[in-house]
Structures are given as C-alpha cells and as structure tokens.
C-alpha cells in the first residue's frame, strides 16, 4: 500500500464523489449564468430554412414521439418549429406516440402563445395518442380516419374544418417527427421515402448521429439535435427559451466530462509502465 501513488489513488476514487461533483456543478451556472454564444449547425439551419418554405394553408404533421422524460431534449425545438410553422400561416396536426402524449400536447400548447390567436379545429388539431409501430404509420398514410376516427377530445374528424380536406398522406405538406426512438424511421420508410413528403427530425442527440446518413442522402431536410438544436432554433427565431437557459449547465457538465477523460488517461499512461 505504501507504494500507492497519487495516480493510483485518483484511479480508485469512489464513484459517488463524481456524482456529487456533477450534481453540484450542474447547478452553479443556473445561479451564475455565463451566457456563452452558440453557433448554428448546418442541419439545424436547414431545418429552419425548410420551415420558411411553408406557405399559407400548407398542412404540417407533427409527431410527438417523446415522453415527458425527454421534454428538455425535444420540446424546445418542437416549440420553436411550431412557432415558425404557425407564423408562416400553415395548419398544424399534432399526434403523440407516447401514452403521456396529452401532457406533451398541453406543454406545447401552453408554450406557443401563437395558438391563442388561432382557432382549434380550423388552424390546428390535436388527434391524440396512437400506437402500433410501423403498421399504424403506414395506415395513417393511406387513411387517417381508420386510426383517428375522432380527435383527442372525441370530435369526429369530419366536424373539424381542417380535417375535412385531410384524408391521407397526400393531403399533408410536411412532417416533423420529434423522437427518442424508432418513430422517425417509420415515418421515413412509410411517408417520406414512398411519397416524397418533406420530413425533418427533432431528435435526442443520438438520433442526430443515427439519422445523419438520411440527412446526407436528402431524405431529411433538417435535423435538430437535443437541447442544443433547440437552443439553436431559439436563436434563429430570436426568442431564447428553455433550451438556451440550460446551455451554460451543459458547458460546465461537458467540461467536467472532458476533465474526467483527460485525468483518467493521464493516470492510465502514468501507471501503465508499472502495470507492465
């Protein structure tokens, strides 16, 4: 034991020490904000520019395929995109693929003041929760009413002015899928690829990696990655929101991760000779 060096000791720190450092470190930037500038990723800018091509009366389908647990990752970008869509004069249809979809819809509805100037049923509609994986996405493409005979509040679709003319994927002009899992794949395979409908992804950060080849091959016109993408979109529309606020905390926590990696590798190389 007497031959134990500082590096050996560092390699054997109790993991709870790390947890506490991270937890406290995350809070400091909220109390003392830093306000570092953020740059815009090309995929986020393309998403924003794609939304600006919408014309009055276009119908946009937003799929909320994330639960409350991923609100911080996907909701800020969804909110920013919704604001752009409504300001372009486009109509909105929102659906939710998680059982807590109603909560996500409430959150979206309350985070976008533009809804207050619009009329439910005419300018926007919430169809509610649906499940069934790829089969249900393909079925909505052929016949929306077979999956959503009514909206989430029990009103038959034919009684909603917006839905009178919307029967299938042919009546939709754009899709945005907010995802933590596979639903974006389903929409790409069953909507974007066979029908050529413009589609963008608002995903958790890992999906920005997984879906990058789809963006490169032109199937997705844009990708927003996690809260960082949300902050970039908030910057693009000039309305800082929830994502912008946590960017400083991300800076501190990411720095801590880098410090941990560096320290671990210095320790590893410092003790490697002795281990051999």
């Amino acid at each position: 034991m007497s031959s134990e060096t500082i590096w050996d000791k560092l390699q054997n720190i109790d993991r709870k020490v790390f947890y506490w450092i991270l937890w406290i470190g995350l809070m400091i930037p909220f109390i003392r904000p830093i306000g570092l500038p953020i740059s815009i990723a090309p995929s986020t800018r393309d998403l924003y520019n794609g939304l600006l091509t919408l014309e009055e009366g276009d119908v946009v389908w937003i799929n909320i395929a994330f639960g409350v647990s991923a609100w911080i990752d996907c909701m800020p970008a969804t909110v920013a995109c919704t604001k752009v869509i409504l300001r372009q004069g486009a109509k909105l249809i929102v659906v939710g693929a998680y059982t807590d979809a109603d909560l996500s819809w409430d959150k979206l509805r309350n985070s976008v003041p533009d809804f207050d100037q619009l009329e439910y049923g005419k300018d926007y509609v919430y169809l509610g929760y649906y499940t069934g994986g790829e089969a249900v996405v393909a079925q909505i493409a052929s016949d929306i009413r077979s999956v959503f005979p009514t909206d989430a509040y029990g009103t038959p679709l034919d009684e909603l002015p917006l839905m009178k003319e919307v029967n299938s994927v042919h009546d939709i002009d754009m899709v945005l899928s907010g995802d933590t899992g596979d639903w974006g794949d389903y929409y790409m395979r069953q909507w974007a690829s066979p029908y050529g409908i413009p589609m963008a992804e608002i995903g958790i950060a890992m999906l920005a990696s997984s879906y990058m080849p789809f963006y490169k091959s032109g199937l997705l016109f844009g990708i927003s990655s996690s809260s960082r993408g949300g902050a970039e979109l908030e910057k693009l529309i000039g309305e800082p929101g929830e994502a912008t606020v946590i960017m400083d905390a991300l800076s501190v926590s990411h720095l801590m991760v880098i410090a941990a990696v560096l320290l671990a590798n210095i320790g590893y190389f410092a003790t490697r000779g002795r281990r051999r």
Binding site: Y19, V257, A260, A264, N265
Partner: peptide, 19 residues
C-alpha cells in the same frame, strides 16, 4: 429516472474511456 444515467456516464468516462 431517465437522467440517472447522466451520473453513470460521467463516472464511466473516468473509469472506462481510455486510449
């Protein structure tokens, strides 16, 4: 519940992420 993995990923970076 889901962000708990944030703690683990931080300590994993220190313990496993080596060249």
């Amino acid at each position: 519940l889901y962000p708990i993995t944030g703690f683990y990923i931080f300590s994993a970076c220190y313990r496993a992420f080596r060249a």
